[in-house]
Design a protein around this nucleic acid. Sequence first.
DNA 1: AATATATGCATGATATGTCAAGCAAAGGCA
DNA 2: TGCCTTTGCTTGACATATCATGCATATATT
Lengths: 123, 123
Amino acid sequence: MPDQLGAKLRRLRQNKGVSLRTVESETGISNAYLSQLERGVATNPNPIKLRKLAEYFNAPYLDLLAHAGYLPSGARENYQGLIANSVGSSRKESQLSSSIVDLTNDEENLVLQYIEFLKSRRN
Amino acid sequence: MPDQLGAKLRRLRQNKGVSLRTVESETGISNAYLSQLERGVATNPNPIKLRKLAEYFNAPYLDLLAHAGYLPSGARENYQGLIANSVGSSRKESQLSSSIVDLTNDEENLVLQYIEFLKSRRN
DNA sequence: AATATATGCATGATATGTCAAGCAAAGGCA
DNA sequence: TGCCTTTGCTTGACATATCATGCATATATT
């Protein structure tokens, strides 16, 4: 069951202050179908339509996919796990991805500097 | 246009050495539709079906989504960009994610150790 | 007050995804 | 050799996604 995709889409549209017909003219998706999506009557949109909406609302596409139930909930760990599995990263790189999730800003700065230092001494 | 989703699915099935009817019984997707997908006659499957196939073939789900044209090609940078945009990471964390992509094994080790060291001195 | 426009939704129509049934060919078995 | 089973595919049927049209209501305009 999609996790409130409709509510999310209506919020995005209302925050932008536009009508169903405006979204229709900008995305090519009919106002009737947009209404059905927002009201939860239609729940299984083609991802291509979600992408158009994400672009129009300047909203994160993976977030809309997750709300539609096509991806796990939008926690970084979940996506990192999917990526690690998809593009064949090493186990250690998965660890790295997981480790950076909860760094503070200062820690992020330090790690970035350290990585740049490591790369700078490659030659 | 999906990037050879059909060829990918046929390769996965043949590598596993199973028939269309075996996949049907394991995934619930009809052998006729599987045939159409493999031959490129059907090109826009519901992601829920792709997920079932990914699970059955033990194949990366994001990879199948990319082949269907629902996600950008399976480069890590693309996914990291989508994630950064989806779960509201800071600009610096996006940089971090991008930076770890091309680290060597030794560099990964060093960075992991450094992160653990940073975390250990939080108290 | 009357008319025009904008808006969200209902609904039947159309397009497309997916299925059930059946066909032809190949392979297995007695 | 004959029969049965398996297999991939075809095709019409069915289910669902999406659209075009129109309705009712609210708002804007004259």
